[in-house]
Design a protein around this nucleic acid. Sequence first.
DNA 1: AGTAAACCTTCTAG
DNA 2: ACTAGAAGGTTTA
Length: 343
Amino acid sequence: MDVVLAKMSWKLIPCLRSELRLDIVLKCGQSFRWKSFNDQPDQWIGVLGSRVWLLSQDQDHLKYKTFPKAEEDSGALDAFLADYFQLKVKLQPLYKVWAKEDPVFEKISSKFSGVRMLRQHPVENLFSFICSSNNNIQRISSMVENLCIHFGTEIWKHEGVSYHTFPSVEQLAKNPMNVEKKLRGLGFGYRAAYIAKSAKQIAENGGEEYLLKLRTLPYQEARDELLKLTGIGPKVADCVLLMSLDQTAAIPVDTHMFQIAANKYLPHLKGYKSVTDKAYKEIGDHFRSLYGDYAGWAHSVLFSADLKHLRDIESDTDTRVESKSKESKSSGSPMLKKRKKRA
DNA sequence: AGTAAACCTTCTAG
DNA sequence: ACTAGAAGGTTTA
């Protein structure tokens, strides 16, 4: 059926599975557009820039194909993908430190290895997370899809399925009244106005370039800029800072992280009904002092391990040695150096 | 400054 | 079948 696609050969990028787990990273709520391809559990299809990407991996490589056929030299494509996955950042040394500092992290670290931050485009990241407020992943994903279908540009058609770019700021800012109305009709609810207004605000400030420039600002300054936008509060701002603006220590505190913090780290927070500004800051500060400069990355591991649909994900097949005891240590003293093996 | 209610829609536990 | 609650919060009062 997919003769053409199947025949195309994979491009390979050296990358250990312990440094990247596509099945987790692509499905842990950082981005919302990656879907498993043709029911294959280890192949993922999505759009990056103005190209459709098919991704997979083996023990030592990240593998990809792109569509439509590119004349572009594969060196540039390699670099593009390596940047998206931030492969320059080595996870294993970080995991080692985080596990040493935190027994809770240590406990989940072997099963949830290879969880890293994507370096997303701020436009997609920002508008996707405006959709995320008071919402669930399934619906967020379908809203993002609708954003692309109705405002993006079609770039490829395959077996009756169209693939679109994520809309540009201009495409979302063209006619705010119409955009809002259209989004309402698509079931965006009150987020329709947030998107239309933010798009307009960003466009007036210089559009995509303005957002990209936030990467050069210190955390607090970039955050203050984001908070000026409609529909972006502290949590979404930190998501954008962490996921597309290079702020590795940003910690988005959502209802999930609040629960995790209250249950496992800061028991006194159990009294709070909701995440107050004070609690928000306290939780972020706690994890930053615990994990250091890449605290946001560590937070993402905790978050992923807590997601319902990922909680029972299969452990890295590389860890075949398995220690069949699911819960035998009681003292919590981390002196057992179980051979999780590693190269 | 800090707290509470309203906000769109969809899915689910009861 | 029907309803209250929650879902990766933000805005307004």
